[in-house]
Nucleic acid binder design. Structure first.
Lengths: 347, 347
DNA sequence: TTCATCGTTGAAAGCGCTTACATCCGAGAT
DNA sequence: ATCTCGGATGTAAGCGCTTTCAACGATGAA
């Protein structure tokens, strides 16, 4: 027997190592490891003894030690800009649950407030087998490029780069659809709210907006370049109210913005959709609670997250992977803020 | 020189170990480790050489190896039931950002959908220094008890147990305040919606509800024991509409419920607050968008999360800690669903 | 009875890092 | 010039686990 200090037994589960289990079962640590890994070649007898011992001691192998030995972590990293609103939460839920199914832990990091992001990400990378990150402007390209090459990386809702895996939801098509829908209501002075430069999502949505106009032989207005928060929406509404900006319809790059505009506009005496139609993106909870209900594009964000976890895992394990970016379809949900009669059905 | 296989240099940052750095700097790995730990006793000269080498190689120590050597992980575990709605997201944001400030990674786990939760948690525990978990019924007591004793555990919004650290937001007092407020509007048939058995939060809120009645020499109705989701709210509204239940005011255990009830009631022709007053809990985004605005209790959830991270870290490092459960104050935000005139101010 | 074979098992070598501990060397004291 | 002391550095022993490799019976064949 090796003259090795052994757990005192004072602490229940912490401090119990593979040595304790081996001792208790009367076998070598190699055997313990073997049965716990479900490995080959262990007699049924020792199998049982070890299992019993492990069970009594509530033994769970220390992740760090295992990682060191097997040279991977059984963990996925996820970096998101922040977590307000339903979008990222849903994404995270999808990601976590799929990762868990794959036996992977997830270590999460929020970019917001980190002063040295690439340092933080690089540090995160030392404890996971691969990274999924959101491809928005909140996470600079340099950050992802810095990681790529050393560990598998998948970009969520990011730009399709030939060298990096991407999962994204369909944007241009649904943008074209929702814009056409608005145009179909006879609106002719329609504005797009959101900054195409803020990320691929918004950029593609604006592209769809333009495409819809072209399809109708109309010319699309320049985007109103603002951020997507409530405060920006209020500001936009004020410009509309003051006549600084004119429009009979507004395609907003997300619901938060759309909702904020709508509220302020109504406070200012405008009526939606009669005076101005408004549509958004995401189908947040509030969208179906406001009056009129907000017409919007629903993204299966949860699936997006799950896809990201899947793709990442495939890259890590070296499984065969389809090549192009994976795109998840979206759907239009029609309510009445676009000009449709109330009780409109989603289609 | 040790006859040790050294990184090939083919992969940029992965594969660079402390050995590569040492070699490049022309020093021993001990020295490298020393300067990277900011340890004592390194000459300025080697310091610089090592720093330079590490920088060129983009070296970051492998977390697992370090963990194994120093016997801790520099990571906090967090287990939440799920992530829908703003409550958990906010909590998570607060937790993550404080943890990051403390130099801790956070590994997240969602209870929802895990078939063997205690196994999952026990596994999680092998890669973190301590665990924070939400003290709701979604996470059975057995789970937390299983961990407690082996690693530091802090319960969020859980029952104050003498043996376990708890951070929680104030419930009973604000419940009493909001209930009194409703009573103050002359309502006499007020119902509480939510199941006190579903967790300490709801239980304490109901306690406050009762206390408010007692203070007014009224007798409090039994709680309407339902879950806190939209669907439950709709069902409740239907019972109200059908006359199965009668009330002139409703204190809901969260906003999601309140909002759902309110919407359905109005669809059914009731007017809020004239026919029935409704108040909720959490101050979600929708609460200020609906008509009438929802009177509710705002919890500083983010702070709650940060507190949890703090407390956990104190326990892990063995820092001195105040003893009782830490409770975060809440505030009433008065809008008009309670019967106050529109443009009510929060107080 | 002897030998080859195969299934089981343990010894031991790492995985990459930290950290006593020993060693070395130059500076100040005598 | 010799001795002592202390700062800087290297050596090596782990941290807890996996996994190769060799050793060990026991078994069936010859």
């Amino acid at each position: 027997m090796k003259g090795r200090p052994v757990a005192t037994g004072s602490t229940p589960s912490s401090g119990t190592t593979i040595y304790s289990v081996a001792e208790r079962a009367g076998v070598s640590i190699a055997s313990v490891s073997r049965v716990l890994q479900g490995s080959t070649a262990v007699s049924e007898k020792t199998r049982l003894r070890v299992l019993a011992a492990a069970d009594e001691l509530k033994y769970v192998p220390l992740a760090a030690a295992r990682s060191l030995a097997v040279r991977h972590h059984e963990a996925h990293g996820l970096v998101l800009p922040e977590l307000s609103g339903p979008y990222y939460s849903e994404l995270l839920m999808g990601f976590e649950s799929r990762a868990a199914e794959l036996g992977q832990s997830v270590v999460l990091m929020l970019a917001e407030g980190k002063s040295d992001l690439v340092r933080a990400v690089r540090n995160l990378a030392t404890r996971v087998d691969g990274l999924a990150m959101l491809g928005s402007s909140a996470i600079p390209d340099a950050t992802v490029t810095a990681m790529h090459g050393s560990k598998p990386v998948v970009l969520i809702a990011g730009d399709a780069r030939p060298d990096i895996d991407t999962v994204t939801s369909e944007n241009t098509g649904s943008a074209e659809a929702i814009t056409s829908h608005v145009l179909g209501h006879g609106r002719r002075r329609v504005l797009f709210a959101g900054d195409p430069a803020s990320g691929p999502d918004v950029r593609d949505r604006y592209a769809g907006f333009v495409a819809a106009h072209e399809a109708a032989h109309l010319s699309a207005a320049e985007p109103v370049r603002i951020a997507l928060r409530e405060i920006d929406g209020r500001a936009l509404a004020d410009r509309l109210l003051s006549g600084d900006l004119r429009a009979d319809a507004l395609v907003c790059a997300n619901d938060e913005l759309a909702l904020a505009v709508m509220k302020r506009l109504r406070e200012g005496g405008q009526v939606v959709p009669d005076d101005i139609a408004i549509v958004g993106w995401d189908d947040v909870m509030t969208a179906r609670y406001v009056e009129p209900g907000l017409t919007t594009v629903r993204q299966p964000v949860r699936e997006l997250g799950a896809s990201a976890a899947d793709r990442l895992h495939q890259r890590i394990t070296g499984a065969p992977v389809g090549d192009g970016p994976q795109v998840i379809p979206t759907s239009l949900v029609i309510r009445s803020s676009c000009g449709c009669p109330p009780e409109g059905v989603s289609r």
